[in-house]
Design a protein around this nucleic acid. Sequence first.
DNA 1: CGCCAGGTTAGAG
DNA 2: CTCTAACATGGC
Length: 293
Amino acid sequence: MYQLNIPVPLEFSYDRCIEFLLRSPKEVLHSVQNGKVYKAIALGDFVALTEVSFSNRQIQVTVLNADPVFLKQPVLEEYIRQWFDLKTNLRPFYAMARKDKLLGPLVDQFYGYRIVGQPDLFESLVWAVIGQQINLSFAYTLKQRFVETFGRREMAQDKTFFLFPSPEVVAQLSDADLLPLQFSKQKSKYVVEIAKAFVINGLSKDSIEKLSFDQAKEKLMSIKGVGNWTANYALMKTFRYPNAFPLEDAGVHNAIKNLKKMKVKPTLDQVRRVFKKYKGWEAYATLYLWKSL
DNA sequence: CGCCAGGTTAGAG
DNA sequence: CTCTAACATGGC
C-alpha cells in the first residue's frame, strides 16, 4: 500500500475543506468517513483509489489499490496540491479581507478555508453546465445520474468509487441518452458539445494552461454553452486563477444582498462595485461569500 | 402555487 | 455594450 505525505501551508484548514466536501449527500465523486476522504483519481491509464486524511499539518494520501510500478507519484502529488489549492499564498488576501466590512467576519470565521477545486477540466466544465440555472440540490441529482450511468466504477475495501465520465464516452451521447436523466435539451446539447471540443477539437487542460488569463477565458467561451460564468468557474476551480470571477453567480448576488441587508438582489453594476475592492482576489472573495450562505 | 435556482444564447436596441 | 425572452424543471 502506497503512502504519500504532503505538508500544508499555515493558512489551511482541513476541516473547512471537509465541510465543503460534505456539502451534498448525493455526491458520487468522493465520500467522507471519519474525516477521511475516499476518491478515485485518474493518473493517465492508472486509476488510484485513494484515502485522504490529515495529521501533523500534513495531508496523508494512501493508495488502496496501488501497484507501485504503475503509480505515478509526482502526478498524484500534483493532483492533491491542485485539488486543495495548496500553492496559493493566502496572506495577501487575508490582509486585504480583514479590513473589509463584508469579508472581514467571514475570513475570521472560516480561516484557512480554500477553494476545493476540480483538477479535471472536463469535469469542471460539465459540472458547471449541469449547475446552470437550477438549484444545487437538483444539480447534484443530475450529476449523480450522469456519473453512475456513464462513469467508470471501481471497488476497494468494500467502497465504491466513481470516475467522472470521459469526453470520449460523452461525445457519443445524444438527447436520447441524457433527456431520460432529466437533462434539459439545452444542457444535453452543451454537455455533448463540450465533450466534442475535447475529442474533436483537441481542447485540453494543458493547451489552456499555456494561454494568458484573457486568452484562456476567450477560448473556453468559444464553446457553446460556456458563458462568462462557466468560464470563470473553470478558471477558478481548475486553473486556480485567484482573480477569476463568476460575476453572474446567483449565490454571490444573494450573499451580498444578505450581508448588506438589501431588499432586492444587487444589479451587476453594484456587484462590480463591491468587487472592485477585491481586485486580484475575486475567486477567494467569491468563495467566502458563498460560504456565508 | 409561485418564485427562484452557483446561466446561456440569440436577437434587438 | 446592455437588455430581454426563451429555455425547463425541481426545491421549498
